[in-house]
Design a protein around this nucleic acid. Sequence first.
DNA 1: TTGTGTTTTATTGCCTCC
DNA 2: GGAGGCAATAAAACACAA
Length: 270
Amino acid sequence: MESGRIFFEPSCQNNMLFVSNAHSGFRVGGRTVINMEESSKRRPFFSTAEELYDDDYFDEQLPEKKRRLTPEQVHMLEKSFETENKLEPERKTQLAKKLNLQPRQVAVWFQNRRARWKTKQLERDYDQLKSSYDSLLSNYDSILKENDKLKSELLSLTEKMQPEETAGERGQKPDPAAAVDAVQPCLELTVKVEDRLSIGSDGSAVVDDDGRQLLDSGDSYFPDNDYPDCMAAVDGINSEEDDGSDDGRSYFPDVFAEEQQEPIGWCIWS
DNA sequence: TTGTGTTTTATTGCCTCC
DNA sequence: GGAGGCAATAAAACACAA
């Protein structure tokens, strides 16, 4: 040992090393725990007190290694995380005692678990958005085809009507171009829908009307519900984590929360 | 066995809240 | 100012193909 006096946390049998006068450690309960650089020449984090007091062990077990939590410990932590993913001090202490861990270890485990949950949640949210987008796109395509079909039907009908009108010299001369003009509002509407479906020039970023990047650091990547159309086609939205440990909050909860079913591409003219 | 990618545990620095 | 949260990161442990 280079410097400092090593001692054990008395309340915990799953011992970490503490150095009473280290300068480069991290803070735990007003003491300093040796950092990785210093500790890397030493013993495993979770060796027992008996082992640490054993000189042979002390000599043979270098360098220090991390030890994983046991499956039982992980199971208990997971169960606790399922009920509440934030850890109030009292629960932290109770869990630590129950599992023979440092309260700090329990806190770290929860912190890392929340980070993993968030990553998974983002993946799920992305998948849901993507399927929503694909569904809207396919809807849009079919509406576009239907629109084209109706347009050509209209044209052929007006052309068929023209000879009859000419022969009888009755009424005004029908104008095929005018008929196409009549469907123009619908065409414009579908173009607008297309605009709403586009997701940025490179297809990799979600940008709103002002070009503002929607990705933020908060809970939702769609905080202002700017894209109701894009979410309308998704059924059975479920942001719960597979293991059931979710607190029920999606990373874009507002978007999914409301009913936004607006028919797009419908066009009625007379 | 070994190289490599992934997961888990832990640290650090910064931020926010009380 | 201290406690606690998060993002980024390091490093050990683990999984697995070649």
